[in-house]
Computed example of a mutant assay.
Amino acid sequence: MDAPEAAAGLHAHCERCVKLSRCAQAAPVGGPRCELVDCPVGCGHRLHRCKLAEHRLLCPEEQVPCINAEYGCAAVLARRLRAAHLTDCPASVVLCMAEWNRWPLLAPGRPRTLYAFQCAQPLRRDEFAHHYRRVHGDVHGGAGAWLERRCPLAQYGCPHVADRLYPDRPQQRFVVSPVTGCVGVTVAGSADAPPDLGLLTTLPFEVLEHIAALLDPFSLNHLSLTCRLLRDVCASLVESRGLVMLMWSPIRVDGRVTWRSVAKSWRFSGAFEPVRTLGFRDGRHVADHMRHCAHFDRLDRTSRRELSRLRCALLMEGRCELAGLPAPFTKRE
């Protein structure tokens, strides 16, 4: 063997051998050879023993860490599964950059940042498509006015809201979480009812893990706030159902400020269970509410004091003809 071959640990024959079926029957050519072995991890490849080290660099069944290992993912899996793993990798985080304007009629002539909102919600890659479709496509898009109908006098303080569309089942409704500020789905009436944890907390920890594994990240966020036991249950699922992000801190090196990752933050995203259909809810129309709306009462302004205030307001606006006074002199040519 020459120097490069000796350094690599390969026999001269083994380095050039490509047809193993003939190699097993013929005499060694170009020098000694080692025995033929099967891949120890079961990929089905057969090779000379001296090539095992370099084969493991390409073997599809070799157990390797995730591509995002340095970003916090602790998964170890076969090399052939790494591409498919990226869709639900907890470190493959997508930051939603969708923007919407809450008051489009007030935006002209004013700073854009006053009325434009950005989602900026971190999501796992497998949660992003449904999040964008339902939250930004339906709720913030064309279906926003169909999900709920507010009283026309809401600007005067009327709190009446009527749900018009429901997600999947009539018992469900869209809500905005006061904890995370995210849109989610809940069962009607469950958000207002006090939780009864007596029976739930008596179950074995493994049973609680199985129940919690059926919940979406939006529900796991709120379940973790109920008690310490259920918070531990949610913590045991955060690596499989949550996401991980690096925490950065500024440091000074050689007189220059740079950033360094100091910790890994595990959390659940605000994504909710995929909604497949939207249905119309049976209920009374908003027009029926207007009959007894407290903010729709007519005010008869007949007292002299109220009429005087109205006249003064009209005068200040320059509407003298409505105030019963002659208009100031104007000349037209």
Rank of each mutant, 00 (worst) to 15 (best):
D196T: 07
V244P: 04
V253N: 12
A191G: 13
V187K: 11
V187M: 14
W248M: 14
A213P: 00
P178Q: 12
I211E: 06
V233R: 02
D196V: 08
P194C: 01
S265E: 05
L214A: 13
V185I: 07
I251W: 13
V244T: 07
D192F: 03
A212E: 04
V179H: 13
C227Y: 03
T258P: 11
T202Y: 14
R276V: 14
S219C: 12
G242Y: 00
G181L: 10
D196P: 05
G181F: 05
A213T: 06
A263Q: 09
V253E: 14
L229P: 06
V253P: 14
E209N: 09
V233L: 00
A235W: 05
A188K: 10
L220D: 00
G242F: 04
D192M: 02
D254P: 10
I251T: 14
E239R: 01
W248K: 13
L243I: 13
A193N: 02
W248A: 10
S224M: 00
H210V: 09
L225M: 07
L208T: 01
R276N: 11
G270R: 06
V179Q: 13
A188H: 11
V238Y: 04
L243A: 08
C182T: 11
T180W: 05
S177R: 08
V185S: 05
L246T: 08
P274F: 03
P204N: 06
E273S: 14
G189H: 11
P274Q: 00
L197K: 06
D232F: 04
G270Y: 08
N221R: 09
S265I: 05
A191S: 14
I251F: 12
L208I: 03
G184M: 09
T186I: 15
S261M: 11
L214C: 11
L230M: 05
G279P: 12
M247H: 11
P250H: 07
W259T: 11
G184V: 06
P217K: 03
G189I: 07
R241Y: 06
L197W: 05
W266S: 01
E239Q: 06
